[in-house]
Amino acid sequence: MRIHTAPTVLSCAVVLSALVLPGAAQAAEHPGAATDLRAFASRSVQPQDALGGTTFKNGVVNKGKDIVLGVTGKKAVPVTFTAFDEEGVAITQAFLWQGTDSSSTDTITGGLESDNYPVCTETTVQDGYSYSCKTVFTIDPAVDFKDGNGTAGVWKLFLGAYDLYANASYDDDVARTSIKRAAALTVNASPEPVKKGKTITVTGKLTRADWTTGKSSGYGNQPVKLQFRKNGTSTYTTLKTVRTSRTGALSTTTKAGSDGFYRFVFAGTFTTGSATAPHDFIDVR
């Protein structure tokens, strides 16, 4: 899995105006120094034992929504957080990780290309400086998750920082998010037109992204709702819940009552996003 790191460098004017030690200036002007924060965390140093006094809060990934990924196409994931330090902050770092070891190179994703670093806005507050930070992680499932679907699930947000004296701080569980495999549904209701009271057969298929193969595959043994909306209304009613076959196929029957629209709806799972099929209209005569 490719590793992404996202260093934040404040403006030189802000950094230099607050610096006291010459060594801090060198750290603040060198974005690569941020990668040392992961190495710092790998030494089993707890956040409270770090020399730095930077604290983090209000971490939000993807505006609080699940990150749902198909098999192709890059996903832009916004991340925001707040950092506070009595002495001021020179550099911050952010990435997503999974598992029990935030320093592992096999369970890290999220970050930016080198020409699009995160941005932090400094505000002077009582007893120090507060920083409102934002960035965008660019995640490519074809690259980041090509080794397996087992990475779908909960991911944690790592945040680290160097203060203006080059002291390091980090918190590897500021916020959490779910990265899920995208799902899709189809639906077809027949015959059409149909006489009132006759049987309608509704078929479809539930598939989801397979990051290992780079294709979508059937999602078996999953509950899916069959819903109906009468023509001229705006509300769907659930008629029944059916389960997909081993290959993700759906087939059920219902009685024709009036003109309207049929659709399948899948609520999603811990590892897979939700899906709603485009509706299919039936003319009842």
Rank of each mutant, 00 (worst) to 15 (best):
K196V: 10
A94M: 09
F228Y: 13
A13T: 14
T212D: 07
A249K: 11
T109A: 11
T247C: 04
K215P: 01
T203F: 01
T254D: 07
T241K: 07
G160C: 06
L157M: 11
P193L: 07
Y117S: 11
G99H: 11
Y129N: 08
L239P: 00
G52P: 03
G204P: 03
A183F: 01
I67Q: 02
K225Y: 00
R263W: 02
H279W: 10
V187D: 02
G153C: 08
D140W: 06
V202R: 01
A152H: 03
T253C: 02
C120M: 10
Y236M: 06
G23I: 11
R176Y: 13
I179F: 04
A83V: 02
T241F: 02
W97P: 00
T100M: 09
S132N: 13
L164A: 01
A34W: 02
K180V: 00
A18E: 15
A34V: 03
Q227P: 01
S169G: 08
Q98L: 09
T213Y: 03
A161T: 04
D101M: 04
C120V: 04
G73D: 06
T254K: 01
D283N: 14
A249E: 12
S104T: 03
Y129C: 04
R38A: 10
D66P: 10
V284H: 03
R176C: 13
A277I: 01
T177A: 09
N221I: 05
V136A: 12
L157K: 05
Q222A: 14
K240I: 08
K63R: 15
I67W: 01
T55H: 04
W155M: 03
I3D: 11
E192T: 12
E87T: 15
T124Y: 09
